[in-house]
Nucleic acid binder design. Structure first.
Lengths: 340, 340
DNA sequence: GTAGCTTGCGCAAACGTTTTTGCAATATTG
DNA sequence: CAATATTGCAAAAACGTTTGCGCAAGCTAC
């Protein structure tokens, strides 16, 4: 079998003894074709192993069936899980997922948006990022490419999905306050991004409810490299009076914090309580296990896909929608009362 | 600015007062065009914000500049890290990455291969998978779509990259043997996949060197769901005589094992030693920290991309290449001598 | 038995590029 | 200055689809 070159619809048409137009209509069961030729064409296609060329279809139909997804870090499990779920749902609907990693650099983000645009993605899902590539996005939007943001406000009126980081931080802080903590150190992801800002707001709000002022020296919102966070944790513990609890409000903050505390020989929760955001193997299985405020990654990915599909479905009204994902507190062993 | 519809090369040509053929040649600096018109066309393009349509280019040039990547689990950090690195390198070379998640189901894998094929990906990177969709792959290969396998042999003569799982398991086992362990329980990922097979082979080899026979009741190679692994760990510890060491040779085995051991109140390393494969936050920061045999994820992703790019570069000889990624043992606190 | 309606299908245009070909106009050569 | 080589560009073909249009044949109805 000299299967060397791909078969085109031309080959199918020839094999079935019809014109290519008819072959196309037969394969897509569209327009007026007799049942007899539908069968002839279908058989010919099967025999030849014909599959329509998606590129040519895209060109003609002006739809690539590809969704682009942009995140700051593909390997962050909190993105990876979301991507996985989104891919699954989109695949069901016949879409493929093109991924891009921005490393939180606005330049790379811009380049990727451009790339996706040139590639004519049918839609774009964007994770949080400091960069303001708003003009590029608006241009896409104007060209009928729906954009859904994930923990990110993307300009004017785009759809978005937001984890309720504010409430998460609020609940977490309240939990610690209820245990009697007053000096709660906050290690957060960058306050330039929406999640970071929201978290700090939630923290502040909970403090304010009890009449406490947030103290700037207790808040560290920077990069999340592990070593850096470890040294921040140490520096926080050397304050006098030292904080009695740590709130690590960034998905990658926990590891560094634990490392820092361990280096200093501090025990959890006797010497200091720890509460983190985002559930991981580490939080679950650390000794002691770490209490956490978390949310459903699968749900996030699924809803992102759903939001996108709804925007893509012309029959629906394409009104942008905003979805808030709730969080829940899981109590474990890492929080106690200060001085207990 | 009524930027409503995308600009095509036709608009650029019109604006520059030349034919579209000339515009194309000017923009690509190819063929015979005068410097003057190059400038005129370039300016017109810039003013209009023109960007060539990648779909049309793909159709004409028969190259999509897209690489497909198929893994069993996008959210497994050991794949996510690799994907991240691969995407980075491929992006540098102008390629975009289309991802697919197989969930280890051969059916989904087949569907995705088909999808990628229809989408005309320029190359395919495939992670380990139990399924034998070899005919599909050979068909791709015959159509000049290079395939590079990651921890997977993909049929006849494709390029491949392999982490040295056999040696990893061998070294790990030897390490435990040197400490005096004789009953070493093995929790491995499925033996149907290449990594699992190799690991068991390495384990067996190390045992054989010391004149030990591998005991079937000490080897569990199944699914890696956390609860299942935990119960397996418990069942292993209830053997008499009980194993004195655990070798968890699957990237997701450690969590379940630790959970199982903890449920039983067993101390590491006093009651049982634990050695795992693949470094994670959990292994690093668990108390006690867990010794591990690991490798460089970034390197894997980078080399996969590199391998692919080399196959795609027609100027190179396209000879398939095989790369072995070395592993190294990191000693931590989780391994001691039995009965010590 | 003819007018009109329906059916099935071929033809050709279109999607947005790149590349080949051909043809003038200009430049080079003896 | 005539013959020839070179240059710059327009026109058209091609990539693989889908789809609007028109035409012939068969059917219904008066």
């Amino acid at each position: 079998m000299t299967n060397r070159s791909r078969k085109t619809i031309k080959d199918v048409a020839a094999a079935a003894g019809v014109s290519i137009g008819t072959a196309s209509r037969a394969l897509n069961r569209r327009g007026r074709v007799s049942e007899a030729t539908v069968i002839r064409v279908t058989n010919a296609a099967k025999k030849l192993g014909y599959q329509p060329d998606a590129i040519a279809q895209s060109l003609r139909l002006k739809s690539t069936m590809v969704i682009g997804m942009l995140v700051t870090d593909l390997s962050n499990p909190f993105f990876a899980g979301v991507i996985r779920a989104a891919e699954k749902r989109l695949q069901q609907a016949g879409y493929a997922l093109l991924v891009g990693n921005t490393d939180n650099e606005s330049e790379r983000e811009g380049a990727l948006i451009d790339l996706f645009r040139r590639r004519r993605v049918d839609g774009l899902i964007m994770g949080p990022c400091a960069a303001e590539n708003v003009p590029l996005l608006e241009d896409l939007d104007q060209n009928d490419v729906p954009i859904v943001g994930y923990d990110r406000d993307v300009g004017s009126d785009q759809s978005g999905l937001h984890v309720d980081h504010r409430r998460a931080a609020y609940e977490a802080t309240r939990h610690l306050l209820n245990l009697g903590h007053e000096r709660i150190a906050l290690l957060s992801s960058s306050s330039k991004l929406s999640p970071g800002r929201e978290r700090i707001a939630g923290y502040t709000e909970a403090l304010a409810e009890r009449g406490f002022e947030p103290r700037d020296d207790l808040i560290r919102a920077h990069k999340s490299s592990m070593d850096f966070v470890a040294s921040e944790a140490l520096s926080l513990m050397s304050l006098r009076p030292a904080p009695t609890a740590f709130l690590t409000l960034g998905t990658r903050m926990l590891a560094g914090t634990l490392q820092g505390l361990r280096q200093n020989g501090l025990r959890i929760p006797q010497d200091v309580s720890v509460l983190t955001v985002g559930d991981t193997d580490l939080a679950r299985l650390h000794a002691p296990s770490i209490s956490t405020v978390t949310w459903d990654l699968e749900l996030v990915g699924q809803m992102l896909a759903e939001l996108m599909l709804r925007r893509l479905d012309k029959s629906e009204d394409g009104a942008p929608q905003r979805i808030i994902i709730p969080t829940q507190l899981i109590e474990r062993e890492s929080c106690g009362s200060p001085g207990a």
